[in-house]
Amino acid sequence: MFDLVYWLVVLSTVVTLAFAWGVFLNQILRGRTERDEEYEKLEERILELMGQFRHMSALRLRMLDKKIEEMKALIKQANSLYSQLCVREAELMGSFSKVETERFESDVKERDAQKVMEEDAIETENSKNELQDSDLSIERKILLMYQEGKDEQQIAKELNMGVGEVSLVLSLFRFRSDSHP
């Protein structure tokens, strides 16, 4: 009987192991099918998203191509308007330069006439002054002004001379007066 119990224990152990392996394998297979289903769903979602992305990017590219064509047309139109503007500007500058040249020439003529008149007036005044001052030499004028108490800078300014010239004349006359008592 001991043998029978022994065999029953062994047999029940083997059946228990077989059952456990069966349950284990069943769980593994069921897990695989569930995971496979999840992978398939995920794969389908990824493919769906990729399709939507392709569709959206194709639309965006078409819109971008359309905008590029519109920009090319606008640039072409702007270039055309710019060339027309340049031509018009050149025409205006041509007419403007003619008018300005005529104005400039008339202004130059007026200025030349005014200069000639001013120079004549100055020459007339100078000749009057020369006639009045011809009686007195430059040296005498310098000495008279110095005796009046004016310094060398004032004398030079009034006579339109350099300060050095006035100093030279004064020093010459001082030398003469010192040597001739």
Rank of each mutant, 00 (worst) to 15 (best):
G22V: 11
K115Y: 13
R35W: 04
F104R: 04
D36V: 01
R88F: 13
V108C: 03
R111E: 10
V9T: 06
L143S: 02
M1A: 05
M161H: 00
F96S: 15
K109E: 13
T13L: 15
I138S: 04
E125W: 02
S83H: 08
T13K: 11
T124D: 12
M63S: 14
N129S: 08
R32G: 06
K41D: 10
R176H: 01
Q132T: 12
L64K: 11
T124A: 08
E34G: 03
F24H: 08
N160M: 09
G164H: 11
R30M: 01
A18S: 15
Q114H: 07
L131Y: 06
K41H: 00
E37Y: 02
Q154K: 08
S95A: 06
G94E: 15
F53A: 09
V163Q: 02
L168T: 10
N126E: 02
I122A: 06
R32H: 05
L47V: 10
E125R: 04
V9Y: 10
E34R: 05
F104T: 12
T16Q: 10
E158C: 03
E48V: 00
D65G: 01
L136R: 09
F96Q: 05
L81D: 14
S137P: 02
G51S: 10
K72G: 05
F2P: 00
A58F: 08
V15E: 08
A121T: 00
E139A: 14
E70G: 01
A156H: 00
T101R: 01
E38G: 02
S127T: 07
S171K: 12
Y39H: 04
D151T: 08
D133R: 01
L81G: 05
I142G: 02
Y39V: 04
R111M: 03
A113S: 06
E37T: 12
F173P: 00
